[in-house]
Amino acid sequence: MDFYYSLAQIIGFHTLLGLSAYIVLQTGQVSLAQAGFFAIGAYVAGMLTVLAGWHLVPAMLVAGLGAALMACLVGFPALRVRGLMLVIATLAFGEAVRLFFFNFDYQIAKGEVKIGPLGGEGFRQIRWFPENGWTSLEVMLFVWTVVALVAGALWWNDRSRFGAVLRAVGEDEVAAQSVGINLTAVKVTAMTIGGFIAGLGGAIYAHYTTHIEHLNFNVLLATFAIAYPILGGLRSVFGTIVAAIFVQGFLVEGLRFLGDWRNLLFGALIVLAMNLRPHGLIDAATARRLARLFSREQWRGEQRRA
């Protein structure tokens, strides 16, 4: 059973990573920096619980805020470039973060041993969960509570005007400007929120795995981050959740017996999905059809109330 709890935890922080890219992608920005924000969250939270002896929850919040601050700072220059140039710029940032942690030493002595991040060796001893006697099940429930809170907030945001503004910017920047939307403000806000969510995910990841090192936060992770929302569709957070479950639960774990062929199949499936469902598994039309299916009257009523 522990295997499944552990898998659910993995899917949990991958979902957070996907959701962090989801809100950025809604504004039409393809960001490969999410793995970098995830790394910042992981290291900050790890250092706070291990070195400063904090409780996990405040450590996670600070980790999220730290990643958000970084995302905001990166957002201003990076979001002035578009399309492929933005992909390159954010990729470079992600790699810079990884290389920073590759060179980052900050160890303090605790009794006999020295603890803390040690460059390429990584950061071991992030054992807040076992030290406080959490069982696998409890950790899983905790992880998914965070996922539910974040997903719920984004789900609600999708229904708010700000959510529609995000999508409007993603649809047509010129038209968005002409109806009075400040592009920079909207994009940087989305990036900052995305950074916060990635930071939370990274904090959870660090405490799940107990040992982090720079190689965990490579380009592959950044690709996963944008793959979930692209695969799932940008109309609903459920698409991202389903995609994370599908990729981590089925493609990565379920197809483990295929060995190296698994990666080939993963690539092929992305290509297939982009051809068959160019706007994601759950695109705008599907999302509306689903909504109508579930509650035709309620949906209409909601729109009318609006």
Binding site: R161, A164, V165, R167, A168, E171, D172, V174, A175, A176, S178, V179, G180, I181, R235, H279, A284, Q303, A306
Partner: peptide, 22 residues
């Protein structure tokens, strides 16, 4: 715009809602 620039994947309602951002 000369070539219509609507937010195609937003509803008619939401398109007008955007201009309320003014």
């Amino acid at each position: 715009f000369q070539n219509i620039r609507l937010f195609a994947n937003l509803t008619v309602w939401e398109n007008l809602w955007m201009a309320e951002n003014a």
